[in-house]
Design a protein around this nucleic acid. Structure first.
Lengths: 197, 197
DNA sequence: GACTATACCGCACATTTGTGCGGCTGTCAA
DNA sequence: TTGACAGCCGCACAAATGTGCGGTATAGTC
């Protein structure tokens, strides 16, 4: 069964609290957050969420809310679309979530991007892999970066060649791209995750 | 500062409770578990753990214990050494932990292995990567597997060629290895994690 | 000896927190 | 109209829970 808007909000709050504080909220804390002056209202919601198998309420136990769906683990959003000039990933452009090690999770701005094409095959980055991206505008020689070229996000290696700066694919079938006004560096690739079926 | 035996036990219990129940224990629950009839005793321990930066105690909040060290996140062990004939990874052979998405975490037997050598470079698996391994004895054509060859764990692709079965590297510099008595399949590679510095 | 840390016990108290029960207003489908 | 939901209010009560303050004992260190 689907969750109502309100229920989604409350479930999200419980999730967030567990993730950030390490323990679930009390009934009254939820009420405070959503301006419910009555504990009864909150309990109605918890009951609904429990019926829909989202949480489990443990009777007689303070903060006795257990998350059954989703999780309380650190995750980064998977970007569906990247828009130039927007430092933050807009909610609408998030396709999903991937849980990662905290070494990869970064500071909250880090996101993942599904790799399209085989232009980096020579560097062991393949179509369908997820690259973990830490947003930053500058980068160093040799680093693998995400750049926006005419509204298209691509993975390339950042290199200097003589006087120019280039984004180099790791595949002889593609040509280096000179970095100029049309190219915007989005961030640096800090990790890679691949799923085998 | 090092933890005493008792403190380790209590810290472990808090960790376990958070992981299994989804919320930290109360002072009295800890006392019950360790046969401390006084809440004061438990608070002494919590205070000690807080001093040693293992937990944080939030005043006035029920179950207000926050884990600062280690984690409550799903992680898989990183195998340092794999021994033939032992289905479970012995504690002594665990080098560390990596947190992963639950899709990768599997059922509890899954582990990670750091890749040595470049024999699978053609398949985008590079030296230093971590492959996620689900232990199993059989595997299908084309799957990437971990095999033990003369006590050495290697990553290869499982292939049939004519009448024989081979473990094929993805690098022309290496030769396929015929599967015979000397070769033991440890498991299947279900994922890959890479860290860029 | 004085001091500190660890590891316990015990009790009273105030606060936090879940619970029970009653009530209200809408909307929507049968 | 009736019924089932969603969403909300209010109150009193009992249980769960953190807190303050006191005590004992052992071990190690300066």
């Amino acid at each position: 069964m689907e969750l109502t808007e309100r229920q989604k909000e409350i479930f999200g709050y419980i999730e967030k609290t567990v993730r950030e504080k390490g323990y679930p909220p009390t009934i009254r804390e939820i009420g405070k957050r959503f301006s419910c002056s009555s504990t009864g209202s909150v309990r109605d919601h918890l009951k609904a969420l429990a019926n829909k198998r989202c949480i489990e309420c443990i009777p007689g136990v303070s903060r006795g809310i257990r998350l059954l769906r989703k999780s309380m683990y650190p995750s980064i959003p998977v970007a569906g679309r990247i828009i130039a000039g927007e430092p933050e990933l807009a909610m609408e452009n998030i396709e999903g979530e991937i849980r990662v090690d905290e070494k990869l999770a970064g500071d909250g701005k880090t996101f993942a991007l599904k790799v399209k094409g085989d232009s980096m095959a020579g560097a062991g980055i393949r179509e369908g892999d997820y690259v973990v991206v830490r947003p930053q505008e500058s980068c160093r020689e040799g680093e693998i970066v995400i750049a926006l070229i005419e509204d298209e996000a691509t993975v390339k290696r950042f290199m200097r060649r003589g006087k120019g700066v280039f984004l180099e694919p790791a595949n002889p079938a593609y040509k280096p791209i000179p970095v100029d006004g049309r190219v915007k560096i989005i961030g640096r690739v800090t990790g890679l995750i691949r799923y085998y079926r």
